[in-house]
Amino acid sequence: MSIEARLKELNITLPDAPAPAANYVPFVQSGNLVFVSGQISANENGLITGKLGADLDVAAGQAAARRCGLALIAQLQAAIGDLDRVVRVVKLGGFVNSTADFTDQPKVVNGCSDLMVEVFGDAGRHARAAVSAPSLPLGVAVEVDAVFEVK
């Protein structure tokens, strides 16, 4: 099944690839690897802000991380055109805006990781980091960057 068909089957509509917010590019391809810059949590209503452990629970954090994943896939599509060129999701780097005593960063970033497996199947299984940050740009709840292997 093509990735486009899989997205339709999952009832997933990708957002437009967000424009960079500062002096960087949204993606860089080097050889068969595409590095996608960090995508911040946002939905059709705007930014998803707040601090895990204070303002947001794990489920809300997972939803925010999933939105980061959708933006990552949208950026990847902008970079390579055809998502069927994806060989592997190589690595995700997840940053969670959280209180000092919040320790469920891996559960939050699962919102993005689970999406990658839903969309890309076994090729969506990846290495990952899930870390806490005392704040993130614009007060967002989650930011995730990624490395993809393409053919």
Rank of each mutant, 00 (worst) to 15 (best):
R6K: 15
G93Y: 14
S98F: 06
A65M: 09
L136I: 04
L115C: 07
D82Y: 04
R88E: 06
D82V: 10
Y24E: 07
V142D: 10
V150H: 03
I12A: 09
A54F: 10
G46L: 03
G111C: 09
R66F: 08
A130I: 06
L52M: 14
D122C: 11
A63E: 15
P106Y: 10
D16R: 15
L92A: 07
K107I: 11
N23E: 15
R67V: 06
L14H: 14
P15C: 03
A60L: 11
L70V: 04
D55A: 12
V86W: 01
A71R: 06
N43G: 04
L92C: 06
A79T: 04
G69D: 04
A78W: 02
P106W: 11
S98A: 15
H126F: 06
V108A: 11
E9G: 02
E44Y: 01
E44R: 08
F27G: 03
C68D: 10
V86Q: 00
G61W: 05
V89G: 00
P18Y: 03
V119E: 06
V131E: 15
A129E: 13
D55I: 11
E149K: 13
P134D: 14
G121F: 03
C112D: 09
I3Y: 03
P134W: 06
G124V: 05
N23G: 10
Q62H: 08
I3D: 03
L56E: 03
A141P: 02
D84E: 08
G94N: 15
L33K: 15
C112R: 09
G61Q: 13
A130E: 08
C112P: 12
P20W: 05
A130W: 00
F27Q: 00
Y24K: 07
A21H: 11
D55P: 13
G38Q: 04
Q77K: 15
T103D: 12
D114R: 15
D84C: 06
F27I: 02
E44K: 09
E118T: 01
A19C: 05
S30H: 13
R128P: 00
R67M: 14
G31Y: 13
S41Q: 10
I48D: 00
S113M: 13
G124I: 01
A22P: 00
D104F: 10
A17T: 01
Q77R: 14
E4K: 14
A133L: 13
A71S: 12
L92T: 13
N110H: 14
L92F: 11
L47I: 07
A133I: 04
Q77N: 05
A21T: 14
R85V: 01
A74S: 04
L136Q: 08
R88M: 11
C112F: 14
D82P: 09
G61L: 07
I40Y: 09
A64E: 12
L33N: 14
N11W: 07
V108L: 08
K91L: 08
L92S: 01
K91E: 14
S2H: 04
N11M: 09
N23T: 12
G61I: 12
L10D: 02
D114W: 06
V147N: 06
M1T: 13
Q62V: 10
A100M: 13
R66M: 12
Q77S: 07
L76Q: 00
V147E: 08
L136A: 10
G50D: 06
S2M: 08
L115V: 09
I3H: 02
L7M: 04
